[in-house]
Nucleic acid binder design. Structure first.
Lengths: 232, 232
DNA sequence: TGGTACACTAAACGCCGTTAATAAAGTGAT
DNA sequence: ATCACTTTATTAACGGCGTTTAGTGTACCA
């Protein structure tokens, strides 16, 4: 339908990109609080009020950045998985884990935006949660690929579908029809195990304790693979 | 020395307490960004400028809150451990883990303050890092108590003292002289494993996936105990 | 009783997000 | 080429923010 990328639309797209770029730069330099409409406008040679032609509000701009970050991370995950055949379960687990930490450490500002901020009662707009789900699905994908190798101690678990939120259950069962509910619980546990060390590293807590934080993560990834019965 | 709690000093103490109280309330209601000197002053019936008689700056006030939070958490840990004899290693691990999540979920605002915020290059003042170390030591304590039971797979590890920062090594060796450097690495891994699920829960990510986030944590704690060779 | 240290206020500065009114410029049809 | 129009940007203002400076009253102590 949209066969006409009119000149106006093109310029508009570019301006939006420049705004995001300036916002990301400010984010990297001084954290989320450093994203300032007036600062961005200054950088682009415009007035702050002009930005309201592109984003409804500062919060919406930040939400857009968050959605972009989620999508970028999900793209990385999917690209890493696309290069590996389904039967190499261990490699696929490692790929997702490594991609996750590598991206997070390389884009700490975006990581904080996604996983660190957020007001107490604030629920993000739909495009953000949708992008977040893509990341979750990549992890579920590798768990699904490893499920048959998992030892009984993990598979035996009194988890039910009703233990999980519909927003997770629905896409999970649609995409991986053969998976039991226990696999969801396992995925969440692995999720937490990946996020713990990475969060501590990105937020600067691990670096105050250990010289090379990646050591902690590497061992944890191997432990996850072992837990899944995928060793050697 | 300070035998004279003069009337002035007493009033001053009380005012400081009221300021912190108002700040914590704002923190709980609208996140770190909601802590506003003018808002606090309004609540106390003062001018914002008057607050500068008690805190050098807004950031310093927040740092104080962070140190308080760390100390509160450390107190909880130490109280939980004081009730358990050294030989009950498994119970002690469980106690620290449970105390950690319970406190974090009960004080989400304080938790965010400590573990979620913080500028990219910002390093906290000394009283904050000192209070943070107390929490770390509690965890190291239970790992020390469990170290002798730990399976060889965990104890065999090419970790060296030089892998860790001095600010961790010095107090650790002082307080637990018999511990090898491998125990530090194990402690950090357990730390990450505890923080992952709790961070995801407090930041609201787990709740969007699972009805009862504590399930994830409970299983993780049991896995930690098992990893340490403390099951049954 | 006088003087001094302290607690506080008032006013201002320069930031911030956001809104309203307005002008300029691009676009498309006649 | 002219007109109506939509889109884009500007200026000016409002209220809120952290912070500083200068000045005011008041509690304390000699």
């Amino acid at each position: 339908m949209e066969t006409k990328p009119t000149r106006r639309a093109r310029l508009r797209q570019q301006t939006i990109a420049e705004i995001k770029e300036a916002a990301l730069k400010a984010l990297a330099e001084s954290g989320p609080a450093g994203i300032t409409l007036r600062g961005i406008a200054r950088e682009l040679g415009m007035t702050a009020a002009a930005l309201y032609g592109y984003f409804d509000t500062r919060d919406q701009l930040i939400s857009t950045l968050a959605a972009d970050a989620y999508n970028e991370l999900a793209d990385s995950h999917e690209a890493a998985l696309a290069a590996l055949p389904p039967e190499e379960a261990a490699s696929r687990v490692r790929a997702v884990c490594d991609t996750f930490r590598t991206w997070s450490v390389a884009n700490p500002a975006a990581f904080r935006l996604i996983y660190g901020d957020g007001l107490p009662g604030f629920s993000p707009p739909e495009d953000v949660t949708k992008a977040a789900r893509r990341c979750c699905m990549a992890l579920l994908d590798v768990v699904a690929g490893a499920w048959d190798h998992a030892p009984a101690a993990i598979r035996d678990d009194e988890a039910e579908w009703s233990d999980f939120q519909e927003s997770l259950v629905t896409p999970a069962r649609e995409q991986f029809p053969h998976l039991p509910p226990q696999a969801l619980g396992l995925t969440l546990r692995i999720w937490g195990r990946m996020y713990g060390p990475v969060m501590l590293e990105v937020f600067g807590h691990l670096g105050q304790q250990i010289v090379d934080p990646s050591q902690v993560y590497r061992r944890e990834v191997e432990a996850i693979i072992e837990m899944l019965g995928l060793s050697e």
